[in-house]
C-alpha cells in the first residue's frame, strides 16, 4: 500500500519536473511577445473606434454646416423680402422682385408627376426581378440595364430629351390641342420619370427577394395563384420597403437640375397646365447663379436653395413617419 502511494507521488513529481524542463527561454520570450501583441490589438481597436466616431460626427457637422451656410447667405434676402418670398408669384430680377412660388410649384409638379409615371415601371421591374426571374442571364441583363439608367450623366438625358422627347411631346400636344411648345413641365417630368426608375426598382427588388419563401409557399399551398401571392403576401410584407424606394426616387427627382433645365423651358411664369413651360428651384439656381449681379438677387437664389433643402427634408420626414407606421413585421 505504502509503496504504491510513494510511486504515485514520484510519478507526479516527475511529471511536474518534465513540464518545468520543457519550458524554454524561447517560450518566455514568446509569451511576452503575445502580451505586447495584445496591447497592440487593444490600441488598434481604440484607434479604429475613434476613427469611426470621428467620421460619423463629421457627417453630421457637414450637413449642419451646409444648412448653416444656406441660412446665413439667405439672410439679406430674408430681411428685404420677408416671408412673402415663398408665395410671391413674380420673379423678376430686373425690377428686383423675387417670388419663389412659380419654382416651388414647378419643382413639386415635375417631381410628383415624374413619380406617378415611374412608379408602375419601378414596381414592375422590382416584381419581375425579385419574384419571377431572380436569376439567369436575362434577369442580369435587365437588372444591369436598369441600374445603368442611374449611372448615365443627367446632361445626356437632357440632350436626349431635347432631341427625341421634345419633338414627340410637341406632336402629342398638337393632337390634344394645346400650344405645341414641346419643352415644358410635361417633358421634364417624362425625363425625370426615366431617371428615377432605378431607385425604387433596386430597393423594391431587394425587398421582394427578402420575403421568406415559407410565406409564399404557405399561400401557394392554400391555392393562391402567382398574382394572388404577390398581392396578398409579397406586397403587404414589403410595403414599407417599396415606399422607401419611392421616397428615394422622389428625392432624386426634387434635386435633379441639368436634365430638367434643358427641357423645362426656363420661364419664371406660373405654369398654367402640365404642358406649359416652367422652371424648378434647382434649375433656376443653376441658370441664374452666374448672372446674379447684386447681393439681394444672389441671396434670393441661395434662399431658393434653402427652400429646396427644407422641402426635401420635410418630405423625407413625412416619408419616414409613414414607413414607421406601416412597418408591421
Amino acid at each position: 500500500m505504502k509503496t504504491s502511494l510513494d510511486n504515485s507521488v514520484v510519478t507526479r513529481r516527475n511529471s511536474v519536473l518534465r513540464v518545468i524542463n520543457s519550458i524554454k527561454t524561447s517560450d518566455i520570450v514568446r509569451t511576452s511577445k503575445r502580451i505586447k501583441h495584445s496591447y497592440r490589438q487593444i490600441r488598434t481597436e481604440k484607434i479604429f473606434r475613434r476613427t469611426l466616431i470621428f467620421m460619423g460626427v463629421a457627417m453630421v457637422l457637414l450637413v449642419l454646416g451646409i444648412m448653416l451656410t444656406l441660412i446665413v447667405e439667405s439672410v439679406p434676402s430674408i430681411k428685404s423680402l420677408g416671408i412673402g418670398y415663398l408665395w410671391g408669384k413674380v420673379w423678376d430680377p430686373v425690377r428686383d422682385i423675387y417670388g419663389a412660388y412659380p419654382f416651388l410649384l414647378g419643382t413639386l409638379l415635375t417631381s410628383f408627376l415624374a413619380l406617378a409615371i415611374s412608379v408602375p415601371f419601378s414596381f414592375a421591374v422590382a416584381i419581375v426581378l425579385g419574384e419571377y426571374y431572380p436569376k439567369g442571364w436575362l434577369s442580369n441583363l435587365l437588372k444591369n440595364t436598369v441600374e445603368l439608367i442611374a449611372a448615365v450623366p443627367s446632361v445626356i438625358y437632357g440632350f436626349w430629351g431635347l432631341a427625341v422627347l421634345v419633338p414627340i411631346v410637341r406632336s402629342f400636344e398638337t393632337k390634344v390641342g394645346v400650344q405645341p411648345v414641346g419643352i415644358g413641365i410635361f417633358s421634364a417630368s417624362l425625363i425625370l420619370s426615366v431617371m428615377i426608375i432605378p431607385y425604387a426598382a433596386s430597393l423594391g427588388r431587394a425587398m421582394i427577394q427578402m420575403v421568406p419563401s415559407q410565406l409564399k409557399e404557405a399561400a401557394s399551398a392554400l391555392g393562391a395563384t402567382r398574382w394572388e401571392v404577390i398581392r396578398s403576401v409579397i406586397l403587404p410584407y414589403t410595403k414599407s420597403g417599396l415606399f422607401a424606394g419611392i421616397l428615394l426616387s422622389l428625392g432624386r427627382a426634387l434635386g435633379e437640375t441639368m436634365a430638367v433645365t434643358m427641357v423645362i423651358g426656363n420661364t419664371s411664369l406660373i405654369p398654367k397646365n402640365i404642358f406649359s413651360p416652367g422652371n424648378t428651384m434647382a434649375s433656376v439656381i443653376a441658370n441664374e447663379f452666374t448672372e446674379a449681379d447684386h447681393p439681394v438677387y444672389l441671396s434670393a437664389l441661395i434662399e431658393l436653395g434653402l427652400v429646396l433643402f427644407l422641402v426635401t427634408v420635410v418630405i423625407n420626414m413625412i416619408g419616414k413617419r409613414i414607413i414607421k407606421r406601416y412597418t408591421t413585421v
Binding site: 410565406l215 404557405a218 393562391a224 394572388e228 408591421t328
Partner: peptide
C-alpha cells in the same frame, strides 16, 4: 410545413380564413 408559417401581417382570425381571402 416544417416551420410554422402564419402570415405575420394578419390577425389570427384572418390567418384562418386566409385561404378564402387569397382565392378571392
Amino acid at each position: 410545413f416544417q416551420r410554422p408559417n402564419p402570415f405575420p401581417n394578419l390577425s389570427i382570425y384572418d390567418n384562418v380564413i386566409a385561404g378564402y381571402k387569397l382565392n378571392g
